[in-house]
Design a protein around this nucleic acid. Structure first.
Length: 206
DNA sequence: CACCAGGTTGACC
DNA sequence: GGTCAACATGGT
């Protein structure tokens, strides 16, 4: 792997798309809910579910922790895997209701991460999304787009290996981590469709 | 009508 | 350690 390559990719993406200002959410808890709902799901469908939850005043910890699961299933049905997501969201809300979200998010970064991983329905990517965008701590998020893009430029590895590469090369900076992940997702959605590689701005960077 | 979407889990090797 | 089916709706 060339030195500085991840920094150069960041500069290219930022120059191409401009700042993305992720995560689109009004509160930290909305980030948590959105992070679970967006698993294998288009963001447009997540927005519908978020709107529905807001209308029922369920997008806050105490309310969601006490919510009727059947109602939750109805509200998140548009996101797929709706039975799992409904019950898991409620359990996650119950956890935060008991332990206090601010208190949990004020722990050390690796402790927040492992705490999130201990909850059903939260794996590596969702845990890191929560750490970065809800707890506001520097953890680089790897997702399917990131893995694909890195493979395109000759960088391969599993989740933790890729994360290690980004965190080693980049400055430890919450805003850069947030922006970089957002840029990868948005660039991939816009330009990495079929047969788009020839006009990709990253062509030849490896 | 097939395929994919900002994954996670539990079972299995 | 890695791999795999199951989980499910909605858009192209």
């Amino acid at each position: 792997m060339k030195p500085e390559i991840l920094c150069r990719v960041y500069d290219l993406l930022l120059d191409e798309l401009g700042p993305q200002n992720w995560w689109p959410a009004e509160t930290a808890f909305e980030v948590v809910v959105g992070a679970v709902l967006t698993q294998q799901t288009k963001w447009a469908n997540v927005e519908k579910a978020i709107d529905g939850l807001k209308e029922h005043d369920l997008l806050e910890v105490q309310a969601l922790a006490k919510a009727d699961v059947a109602l939750l299933e109805e509200l998140v049905r548009c996101c797929g895997f709706y039975r799992q997501k409904a019950s898991r969201l409620k359990e996650i809300a119950m956890f935060f209701a008991e332990h206090g979200m601010d208190k949990v998010f004020s722990m050390h970064i690796e402790q927040i991460r492992s705490t999130m991983l201990s909850l059903k329905g939260i794996g590596n990517e969702t845990a890191d999304s929560i750490v970065l965008y809800a707890a506001n701590k520097p953890k680089f998020v790897i997702d399917a787009y990131t893995t694909r893009m890195m493979k395109c430029i000759g960088i391969q590895g599993n989740y933790m290996q890729l994360q290690g590469m980004f965190e080693k090369e980049l400055p430890t900076d919450v805003d850069i981590y947030k922006e970089y992940h957002a840029l990868i997702v948005e660039y991939s959605k816009a330009y990495c469709g079929r047969n788009r590689c020839s006009e990709c701005i990253l062509t030849g960077i490896e």
